[in-house]
């Protein structure tokens, strides 16, 4: 990379930074914690390039003027939402494309597709990638009919970062299911995704690279054996973000994992196939669960996994032998290299 190569780190300002008027219980902490990582990434980028940084609050005019002024060779894209609207994630990427600016991570279509959990499952199912059976409970639907086996897990269709994943998300009967769907409809004003709950080990697969130069980083597992008996074995919002809660303290990330070689290979194959099928770029995390027969299922795919220093992705990179700085540089290089790729053979 030339020393005058310019990279703009673009991220979304946390919602609460917009000012008063937002009740604290609606504040999405997962976004605010991401900001802690911004400085670290920015320092890493400064070491390898002429770096600038911009936090967008959804004012696209400011974003445009920034990009127009900087004219970066590359955007390091950390925009996961704008304002409180995660569906704008693909809109930001579309703006980079409109301005012909290359950016790290997946393209607008993939970002938009992955935010829609049922769409992802439709595509994976088409390619016979195992994913739990599901249906979508539409906002305006009155009847809930399905042929899935309880227990089930209920999620909002279009959120990430474990938003609205709580102990009550796992339901054991039709009444609990009905109540939880109603909760999602009422509080999140969106469709609910209902899936068969796979009670088993939870494995995160970090992937780095493109095409021939792709690496599956060492697997991580979220150990939940110390959770109280009556808690479902899931990574709730609390477990992910709220230090001090029972869930946070008893869901422990382990990397590398103790797992038999045959299963590792199965997991690698499924993760890489999913990555390719969904046209992911540069880096991503595939979350899986292993059922009691040892079959992995893809739960979710995150095209821009958390890159803060204590994140799972970074831990996996460390075990792989990449320092934090090297990881950021690798992502940058992936984005630059794929722009050059063009081959007929």
């Amino acid at each position: 990379m030339e020393s005058d190569f310019s990279i703009s780190l673009i991220y979304n300002l946390p919602v609460f930074a917009e000012g008063a008027g937002i009740p604290t219980e609606n504040v999405d902490l997962s976004q605010s914690q991401i900001q802690e990582g911004i400085d670290t990434i920015f320092s890493a980028l400064k070491q390898i390039s002429n770096a600038s940084v911009f936090g967008t609050d959804g004012n696209v005019e400011k974003l445009f003027s920034f990009l127009d002024l900087e004219k970066p060779d590359l955007v390091f894209n950390l925009c996961e939402s704008v304002g409180h609207d995660a569906s704008k994630e693909m809109c930001v990427a579309s703006m980079y494309e409109l301005m012909s600016i290359n950016y790290t991570g997946s393209n607008a279509l993939t970002l938009g597709t992955l935010l829609n959990k049922s769409r992802v499952k439709e595509i994976l199912s088409y390619h016979k990638i195992p994913t739990p059976k599901f249906f979508v409970a539409k906002l305006n639907s009155k009847k809930i009919s399905h042929n899935l086996q309880f227990p089930l897990i209920v999620k909002p269709l279009k959120e990430d970062a474990s938003i609205a994943i709580e102990n009550e998300s796992v339901v054991k009967n039709q009444t609990e299911l009905f109540n939880r769907i109603k909760y999602i409809h009422t509080n999140f004003n969106q469709d609910a995704l209902v899936e068969e709950f796979i009670d088993g080990r939870e494995i995160n697969v970090a992937i780095l690279g493109n095409g021939e130069n792709i690496n599956v980083l060492p697997l991580s597992e979220i150990e939940m054996t110390s959770l109280p008996e009556n808690f479902p074995k899931i990574v709730t919002y609390n477990a992910k973000w709220m230090k001090g809660t029972i869930e946070f303290e008893n869901t422990i990330r382990v990397c590398p994992v103790n797992i038999e070689q045959k299963l590792i290979e199965k997991i690698h194959t499924i993760a890489l196939e999913s990555y390719e099928i969904l046209s992911l770029r540069d880096y991503a995390r595939v979350d899986m669960r292993i059922d009691k027969f040892g079959n992995p299922f893809v739960l979710e795919i995150n095209p821009n996994p958390d890159l803060s220093t204590d994140s799972g992705f970074v831990a996996a990179a460390n075990v792989f032998g990449l320092t934090y700085e090297k990881l950021i540089e690798s992502i940058v290089n992936c984005a630059i290299e794929r722009e050059k790729v063009f081959c007929v053979n």
Partner: peptide
């Protein structure tokens, strides 16, 4: 690119200006 038809709608979504036709995705 592949999102070309989505770009103006994406911009309009940002500006909260309604438009005819389908959403960016």
């Amino acid at each position: 690119g592949i999102s070309r038809e989505a770009q103006i709608p994406a911009m309009l979504d940002f500006l909260s200006i309604p438009y005819t036709g389908s959403e960016p995705l």
